[in-house]
Simulated assay, not measured.
Amino acid sequence: MAGSFVLLNSKKNQEKNVIAHLKEIPEVKEIQCVSGPYDIFVKIQASTVDELHEIITWNIRKLKNVRSTYMLKINEEATDCKDDN
């Protein structure tokens, strides 16, 4: 399973429109409105990394009212992260 967090900016006053479209994508598992440099936080899960990139590139970045995106690929669950100490 491959996962990613996507931070995105929408056009002014179009957050609800973007969220409505994001809800139609089955691989989108979580959507949050956030404050700061980004407008919307999205968690995505797909079967493979290639499928993950395809969903972000063709289903999210191409949405009409999305201005920009920033993807953070999930490498491993926090409970499995290595402790360097």
Score class of each variant (00 low, 15 high):
residue 74 I to S: 10
residue 66 V to Y: 04
residue 13 N to S: 14
residue 59 N to C: 04
residue 32 Q to Y: 10
residue 67 R to G: 04
residue 23 K to G: 05
residue 77 E to W: 00
residue 36 G to I: 01
residue 64 K to S: 10
residue 29 K to Y: 01
residue 57 T to Y: 05
residue 80 D to F: 08
residue 57 T to L: 05
residue 30 E to Q: 08
residue 64 K to A: 11
residue 33 C to D: 03
residue 49 V to T: 12
residue 65 N to W: 09
residue 71 M to L: 10
residue 12 K to E: 11
residue 74 I to E: 09
residue 57 T to I: 06
residue 9 N to Y: 08
residue 62 K to A: 09
residue 83 D to G: 11
residue 27 E to K: 03
residue 11 K to V: 09
residue 65 N to D: 15
residue 42 V to F: 02
residue 39 D to I: 01
residue 43 K to V: 06
residue 5 F to E: 08
residue 58 W to L: 09
residue 4 S to Q: 05
residue 31 I to A: 03
residue 75 N to K: 11
residue 56 I to L: 01
residue 33 C to Y: 05
residue 39 D to A: 03
residue 55 I to E: 00
residue 72 L to H: 08
residue 50 D to N: 12
residue 4 S to D: 05
residue 14 Q to R: 15
residue 5 F to N: 07
residue 52 L to I: 00
residue 4 S to I: 04
residue 53 H to L: 04
residue 51 E to L: 05
residue 61 R to T: 01
residue 61 R to I: 00
residue 74 I to Q: 07
residue 28 V to A: 03
residue 67 R to A: 14
residue 12 K to T: 13
residue 54 E to Q: 07
residue 15 E to P: 07
residue 77 E to V: 11
residue 1 M to A: 13
residue 57 T to F: 02
residue 83 D to Y: 09
residue 19 I to H: 10
residue 47 S to I: 03
residue 15 E to C: 12
residue 63 L to I: 04
residue 15 E to D: 14
residue 8 L to A: 06
residue 84 D to F: 11
residue 2 A to P: 04
residue 77 E to M: 10
residue 35 S to Y: 12
residue 68 S to R: 09
residue 23 K to T: 07
residue 52 L to C: 00
residue 62 K to N: 06
residue 76 E to F: 11
residue 1 M to H: 12
residue 36 G to S: 00
residue 47 S to V: 06
residue 18 V to N: 07
residue 49 V to H: 07
residue 42 V to C: 03
residue 56 I to W: 01
residue 52 L to P: 00
residue 4 S to V: 08
residue 55 I to D: 00
residue 73 K to T: 12
residue 82 K to P: 10
residue 27 E to D: 10
residue 19 I to Y: 08
residue 52 L to H: 01
residue 78 A to Q: 13
residue 80 D to L: 14
residue 75 N to S: 13
residue 83 D to V: 15
residue 41 F to Y: 13
residue 82 K to V: 15
residue 76 E to G: 09
residue 39 D to Q: 02
residue 33 C to S: 12
residue 10 S to N: 12
residue 58 W to A: 06
residue 79 T to M: 10
residue 44 I to K: 00
residue 62 K to Q: 09
residue 41 F to S: 05
residue 80 D to A: 12
residue 77 E to Q: 12
residue 72 L to S: 13
residue 78 A to R: 12
residue 60 I to R: 01
residue 85 N to R: 13
residue 26 P to T: 02
residue 76 E to P: 06
residue 20 A to D: 14
residue 28 V to D: 00
residue 41 F to M: 08
residue 19 I to L: 11
residue 6 V to A: 06
residue 45 Q to S: 04
residue 33 C to V: 09
residue 62 K to D: 01
residue 77 E to K: 12
residue 64 K to R: 14
residue 75 N to Q: 14
residue 80 D to T: 13
residue 40 I to T: 04
residue 75 N to F: 14
residue 5 F to S: 07
residue 81 C to R: 13
residue 54 E to L: 02
residue 34 V to K: 07
residue 78 A to K: 14
residue 47 S to F: 07
residue 73 K to Y: 11
residue 45 Q to F: 04
residue 66 V to A: 06
residue 85 N to A: 14
residue 12 K to P: 07
